[in-house]
Amino acid sequence: MSELFGKEKKELIKNIIKRIHQGEDIKKLKEEFKDKLKGINPLMIAQIEEELIKEGMKREEIQKFCALHLALFEEEIEETPILTEAGHPIYILMSEHRLLLKLANEFYQEILKREKERLEEIIHHFKESESHYLREENVLFPYLEKHGITQPPAIMWMEHDMIRKVKKNIYQAFEEENWEELTEKAKELAELLNSHFYKENNILFPTALNVIKKEEWPEIKKGFDEIGYCCFTPEEIIKKEEVAVIEEKEKSLFPINFETGNFYLNELEALLNTLPFDITFVDKDDTVRYFNQSKERIFLRTKAVLGRKVQQCHPPKSIHIVERILNDFKSKKRDVAEFWISHQGKFVHIRYFAVRDKNGEYLGCIEVTQDITEIKKLEGEKRIYDY
Rank of each mutant, 00 (worst) to 15 (best):
P276M: 03
T183H: 13
K346N: 09
V211W: 00
K58S: 09
K249F: 00
E296Y: 12
I170T: 06
L326Y: 04
E8A: 14
R289T: 14
P315A: 11
E184M: 08
S318V: 15
K330H: 12
L29M: 14
I220K: 03
H314Y: 01
E8Y: 12
L103C: 03
K377M: 05
H88L: 06
L300G: 12
I319A: 06
L72A: 08
I53D: 00
G6M: 03
G23A: 08
D357Q: 13
L193E: 08
F347Q: 15
E269C: 01
R383S: 13
K64F: 11
W217Q: 02
E236H: 15
V243H: 14
E184V: 00
K187R: 13
K309F: 01
A46F: 07
E241T: 11
E115M: 02
C66T: 13
K7H: 12
V355K: 12
Y387T: 14
P218L: 02
L189G: 05
E176V: 12
E177H: 04
I163P: 01
E110C: 14
Y91C: 05
Q109W: 02
H147I: 00
E110F: 09
G6I: 00
I40W: 01
D225V: 00
N194A: 08
F291H: 01
M1Q: 14
I163R: 02
R334P: 01
H132F: 09
L209G: 11
L140V: 00
S129V: 06
F347R: 15
E61C: 01
L272E: 07
R324D: 11
A86D: 09
L265R: 15
I45C: 02
E75Y: 13
V243T: 12
E8N: 13
D357S: 14
E78W: 00
H343M: 12
R135H: 04
I163K: 14
N194L: 10
F33D: 03
V245W: 09
E235A: 05
R135Q: 03
V322W: 13
K27V: 10
E117V: 15
Q22R: 15
Y143P: 09
K36E: 10
R301F: 05
P255W: 04
L271I: 15
H320S: 15
D161C: 09
E367I: 09
R356T: 06
Q311E: 09
N15V: 13
D225H: 13
M158Q: 07
V211T: 13
F339V: 02
E55M: 04
G87M: 03
F5E: 14
A154P: 04
P206M: 02
E32H: 05
Y143N: 09
E188D: 07
C365I: 08
